[in-house]
């Protein structure tokens, strides 16, 4: 499967990034409506995790002094896991932008982050699945890590059986809120994903 990924053509990579761009545009719109502020999107990037650990060291979130990672599975022909990485300060600011009290307790704070994860990941995966014409449903979001073990925890999740990682960064204009969203596609979904992309490219 690693060989299959390594032989992705430039056109296939370009198509995957564009599909991710469209899906994330829908997710950003959902978030922007929630906080009534413009969300700035990065250009998506694609990483390939082979038999070795993926190199995530240049993900902006890993340079944050304190971060918070949530996860949500998606199941079906398009299968994998979404990881949403929030900077701790940004998570607090997001709560404030959404009109919550600054003094949220830990449970309330966790619940808020899980709600935001659900909004972002469901909009993103729905957008990807619709474009690829592959069915996908969602599991419940959960907290993955909240401390300095982030890198190892994320590496564990991705290494288990995820091979294709689509990454995008959200920033909220004029505020410190930043989050990275990683869509980790499971290796067994890759043939269907690549086949769907090939069909789209052939139609052009």
């Amino acid at each position: 499967m690693a060989a299959l990924l390594e032989t992705l053509t430039e056109d296939q990579r370009d198509a995957l990034k564009e599909l991710m761009n469209i899906a994330m545009g829908q997710a950003a719109d959902r978030l922007a409506r929630l906080i009534d502020t413009l969300v700035i999107l990065s250009v998506p990037s694609i990483r390939l995790a082979t038999e070795c650990a993926p190199d995530l060291s240049d993900c902006p979130i890993f340079s944050a002094p304190s971060a918070y990672i949530t996860r949500q599975s998606f199941l079906g022909a398009l299968r994998g896991e979404v990881l949403v990485c929030f900077e701790q300060d940004g998570a607090d600011e997001l709560a404030s932008l959404m009109g919550f009290d600054e003094n949220l307790n830990t449970d309330e704070h966790d619940e808020l982050m899980l709600d935001v994860t659900n909004i972002l990941s469901s909009a993103c995966i729905k957008g990807l699945a619709e474009q690829l014409e592959l069915p996908a449903s969602f599991g419940a979001p959960s907290i993955l890590a909240t401390n300095s073990t982030l890198f190892d925890k994320v590496g564990d999740v991705i290494n288990r059986d995820q091979t294709l990682i689509l990454e995008i960064c959200f920033k909220v204009e004029s505020h410190s809120f930043t989050c990275d969203l990683l869509v980790c596609v499971a290796r067994e979904s890759l043939p269907s994903v690549i086949e769907a992309i090939n069909r789209m490219l052939e139609d052009l």
Partner: peptide, 24 residues
């Protein structure tokens, strides 16, 4: 664009775009 936020659409119009079309 895929950036379909109402604020993004408002800004491009303000900057002189004649129209906005969502992707795809």
């Amino acid at each position: 664009s895929a950036d379909i936020q109402p604020e993004a659409q408002r800004r491009v119009k303000e900057l002189g775009a004649a129209a906005f079309i969502r992707k795809p």
